[in-house]
Design a protein around this nucleic acid. Structure first.
Length: 912
RNA sequence: GGGCAGUUGGCUCAGCUGGUAGAGCAUCGCCUUCACACGGCGGGGGUCACAGGUUCAAGUCCUGUACUGCCCACCA
């Protein structure tokens, strides 16, 4: 025995720290366009610099890492670009909060100073998330770390802005947008989250100016009444047709407004009459435009009533609401106050209620770009031919419709933000002549009047504007870099479905427009991580499971394995700590299996034996199972594999089946390698005649098994690998995927081994159910079905003796079962366990009867099927054949068992 | 109002092209067997949400219902 040894317990903390450092120092994951291999690139979904690592990141990074490490094993040229997002509003909020503690506001500092502060903050804290990415073992290329505000990426942003402007795809204008009065900025439509909340529908009477009558309108926002510039009714609504063209007076304020008609009005809702406030409602804005109404702004960007609101000027809007409701009520014009539930928009960053607000903003004209992005994701392979930009496939395909729908109904994208942290809009206005100049670099003088008094636009761009360029801006665009030539389009984008619109769709739009090529071939959308009862993890609920704490308690591999095994497509992940603990047990199992192997392996590489012709049914079996595992792992991750005949086969369930990959690894390691193979070779290790073969097969199997597991659990596998003979000092992360060994695929041998296993299980079952102590060594008789089976069992004599814990084993057609024996029939082989006096015969009889009843029931089912003529006629031949075989098998087993039971009953009678 | 998922043992989930219901955890019994008690061996536990339909055969395909969750949406 060798002195190879691993410590008794696996200590993830030390091991992980060592490998993390090793991989980084050796630049193991550095990639470059000149290296060989088919390109395989992935860009990280850049976390916000402000963020701390949460389970969503952990899942995302783990899945990407599994793909990257697997692709590297397959000899691909793998580039994984890491980076972070400047996250405009979020980061500005964080720094503002920090300043607030010192009693400072951003305006106290001024723009320049404030932005400086943010950069300082980023210097101090921006590295946190990067460190946390490291702790997960993500195999990114750290030499290519990017930040959306890097000079290179900022240049890309300016270039894109200017090009789109010159193509008339970016324009500036005064429009109604979503305004967050807390963040003090415009928001894009999808940055507004709608939530239903309880409110009231106020029915307010508006008197006609000519005193001929009144119209009651229903509103959810009485505070906007001062901004009313019309009342709108449906043109065919008999209740109101007489009023159309007349004027009415705004309650309390008394201003005169027209009554107009538009088919937009829903006659069923409220009173069927609508007050129109063009400056404070999106719909009313549109109505105001078509009907050429007055635009009257009464609420300012801080949510305070403006001078146009008359007596209400200066009030906060909610206060105004209360006052105006009271005043209308006092005037006797509040007809009804209804309780309703309706959707109210909130800021996705700070959750403040969003106010429709009219202001000068920049927009991207989205329709044409959206159409191109849509076309690049064909519905089926038939339409692939018509895709000049290449194609992107979305996994799981259930998201396809959602993607289409969003692009089909897209509206122009508001890209300007009234904050200071971000890419400042490259547009200047001439203070003298008002000329607008859009340019990549600051112009020296006005292009129209040559004035030098140019003022840059105050706004910055939406954060998603720069992240939309991420797949190519990180590779050096607008330079025609070697990276772009080699790695673009990237292989796959892995991200959560929650940013399908924010990010994925916009990358598709920008990628197709500027590169003429989709940014990625595949999009894999993973689930959200929830808590054990399905709730979203949030600090306020206190149900957050911190990945770093989990890594600390259970090890990174345990966390990674848990996330991988949970990542079934199209389903949210309900994570609980005991699942992670369960995975730690798995990691530990591997560790201990490796310890056992090392105790039994020589110091050096064991002398090879010819695996294609290796003796020993258990060796042949494990090698067969190993081949299957290799194939299955490919199928699960790539969706395709090469089989023993060298043909390409594809998985019916497609690629990115992380859950399948994990389960496969789990079963192979635990249920096959540990439960059976390691036990089976223990006797081999005791004898010079068998040791060498066992050592070699063990060594090969363990090495390949480690390779298969490595993408999911890189640390523990790397640690074991370097302790193995020939692994010492080497890095598993650089090891290729094990070659297929077609000659080792031998289903007949696997079947023989299964027969042996079933015999062993039969003895164990008898022992357990009859309460025979494991320490009692049994004498067992086997009466095989035929000579071939006899030979198989004979060859496995040592294994059966060992695993079933036997004193002696007799195999033969001539064995005579003592009357007082326990029985089982396995594949036609009678398994006979003679019972010593101490055993309770009654319980054996009960056990036997239970067993027979089970078989009897099954035989009935099968019999019924075969008796059904239409089954025999219509079912496929091999299904019928299988059923017939099964029937014969059951009959045989029952015949044998009832004969044995007869003898057994005799024994009991004699015993009495 | 539209769209999309989900509903399988106590819990969390697999189940591909329809052919005798699986796993992990939990549970019960036995076991300190020289890799592992973070372990070993064996057992118990499911009318696959409900109702129809297609089929020789349905957890698996079709239709409908119920419940849960998510996304989208400018009915004030």
């Amino acid at each position: 025995m060798a002195e190879n040894a691993l410590p008794k317990g696996y200590e993830p903390r030390d091991v992980e720290a060592r490998w993390r450092a090793h991989w980084e120092e050796n630049k193991t994951f550095h990639a470059g366009p000149d290296a060989p291999g088919e390109p395989y690139a992935i860009v990280i979904p850049p976390p916000n610099v402000t963020e701390m690592l949460h389970m969503g990141h952990a899942l995302n990074l783990t899945l990407i890492d599994v793909l990257c490490r697997h692709a590297r094993q397959k000899g691909k040229n793998v580039l994984w670009i890491p980076g972070t997002d400047h996250a405009g509003i979020a980061t500005q909020n964080v720094v503002e909060r920090m300043l607030a503690k010192e009693g400072l506001g951003r305006r106290d500092l001024g723009r320049e100073k404030f932005v400086e502060k943010v950069w300082e903050w980023r210097e101090d804290y921006g590295g946190r998330i990067l460190k946390q990415i490291r702790s997960l073992g993500a195999s990114v290329d750290w030499d290519r770390l990017r930040f959306t505000m890097d000079e290179g990426l900022s240049q890309a942003v300016r270039k894109v802005f200017v090009s789109l402007y010159n193509e008339d795809l970016i324009y500036r204008g005064k429009y109604i947008i979503n305004w967050c009065s807390r963040c003090h900025t415009a928001l894009a439509d999808d940055e507004v989250e709608h939530e239903t909340s309880k409110s009231h529908l106020w029915h307010v009477r508006y008197h006609l100016s000519d005193r001929s009558g009144s119209v009651v309108v229903a509103t959810t926002r009485p505070e906007t009444i001062p901004g009313d510039t019309a009342i709108c009714v449906h043109p065919e609504d008999e209740r109101y047709t007489a009023f159309i063209g007349k004027t009415a007076r705004v309650p309390v304020l008394g201003r005169e407004i027209p009554i107009i008609a538009d088919r937009y009005v829903d006659r069923e809702f409220g009173t069927g009459a609508l007050k129109v406030t063009p400056c404070h409602d999106h719909n009313d804005w549109a109505l105001g435009k078509t009907h050429n109404l007055e635009f009257l702004q009464v609420i300012d960007e801080n949510g305070i009533m403006m001078s146009e609101a008359g007596t209400y000027a200066g009030l906060e809007k909610m206060e105004c609401r209360n006052r105006i409701v009271a005043d209308i009520d006092a005037a006797g014009d509040m007809v009804l106050v209804e309780d309703i539930e309706h959707a109210v928009g909130h800021c996705y960053r700070c959750h403040t209620v969003v106010e429709p607000h009219v202001s000068m903003q920049w927009f991207v004209r989205a329709t044409a770009m959206a159409e191109r992005a849509r076309k690049a994701v064909p519905e089926n392979s038939a339409t692939v031919a018509n895709c000049p930009d290449g194609t992107t496939e979305i996994f799981p395909a259930t998201w396809l419709k959602t993607y289409y729908h969003w692009l089909d109904t897209i509206r122009d994208w508001c890209i300007s933000r009234q904050i200071w942290w971000g890419h400042r809009i490259p547009a200047w206005t001439c203070a003298d002549c008002g000329q607008l100049i859009v340019a990549e670099e600051a112009p020296q003088q006005c292009s129209a009047c040559a004035s030098a008094r140019l003022e840059q636009d105050e706004d910055v761009l939406d954060t998603w504007f720069s992240s939309a360029l991420w797949p190519f801006s990180t590779m050096g665009w607008p330079e025609q870099s070697k990276e772009l030539a080699k790695y673009y389009p990237t292989a796959v984008l892995v991200t959560g479905f929650d940013i399908l619109f924010f990010w994925v769709a916009r990358m598709m739009m920008m990628g197709t427009h500027f590169m003429g090529q989709v940014p990625f071939h595949h999009v894999y959308l993973h689930a959200l991580v929830r808590d054990a009862s399905g709730r979203k993890m949030s600090k306020s609920l206190g149900n957050v499971i911190d990945p770093l704490a989990m890594i600390d308690s259970y090890g990174c591999d345990a966390l990674r394995f848990t996330l991988t095994s949970f990542a079934a497509m199209g389903r949210d992940i309900r994570l609980s700590e005991d699942r992670i603990e369960g995975s730690r047990h798995f990691v530990n199992k591997l560790w201990n299996a490796a310890r056992f192997a090392l105790m039994n392996l020589p110091q050096n590489v064991p002398p090879p034996v010819d695996l294609d012709r290796v003796e020993g049914v258990h060796h042949r079996w494990i090698l067969h199972r190993l081949e299957i595992a290799k194939e299955q792992m490919n199928l699960a991750l790539d969706g395709k594999s090469t089989n023993a005949q060298g043909e390409t086969i594809s998985s019916p369930t497609g690629a990115y089946r992380f859950d399948e990959a994990a389960q496969l690894a789990y079963k192979f390691l635990w249920n096959e390698f540990c439960d059976w193979y390691l036990e089976l070779i223990k006797p081999d290790m005791q004898s010079d005649a068998t040791r060498q073969t066992a050592q070699y097969v063990l060594w090969v199997t363990l090495r390949e098994l480690l390779t298969l597991l490595h993408p999911m659990m890189p640390f523990v596998t790397a640690e074991i690998w370097q302790a193995l003979p020939e692994g010492s000092g080497q890095d598993l992360a650089r090891e290729p995927y094990p070659q297929m060994r077609p000659a080792c695929v031998r289903p007949e041998d696997a079947s023989r081994m299964e027969c042996i296993q079933e015999v062993i299980v039969a003895v164990r079952t008898i022992r357990a159910e009859l309460g025979i102590s494991p320490s009692v060594r049994l004498n067992v008789l086997l009466h095989p079905e035929d000579d071939a089976q006899a030979q198989v069992l004979e060859s496995a004599r040592q294994m059966i003796l060992s695993l079933a814990r036997l004193e002696s084993l007799r195999i033969g057609a001539d064995v005579q079962a003592p009357k007082a024996s326990a029985f089982h029939v396995v594949r036609g082989c009678q398994v006979i366990v003679p019972l010593a006096g101490a055993v309770d015969l009654e319980s054996e009889l009960a056990r036997l009867e239970k067993e027979m009843a089970k078989l009897e029931k099954e035989r009935e089912n099968v019999g019924r099927k075969l008796a059904n003529e239409s089954f025999v006629q219509r079912a496929p031949e091999d299904v019928v054949r299988k059923e017939k075989e099964r029937a014969a098998q059951l009959t045989d087993a029952l015949t044998k068992l009832s004969a044995l039971k007869e003898r057994f009953s005799e024994a009991m009678r004699e015993g009495d």
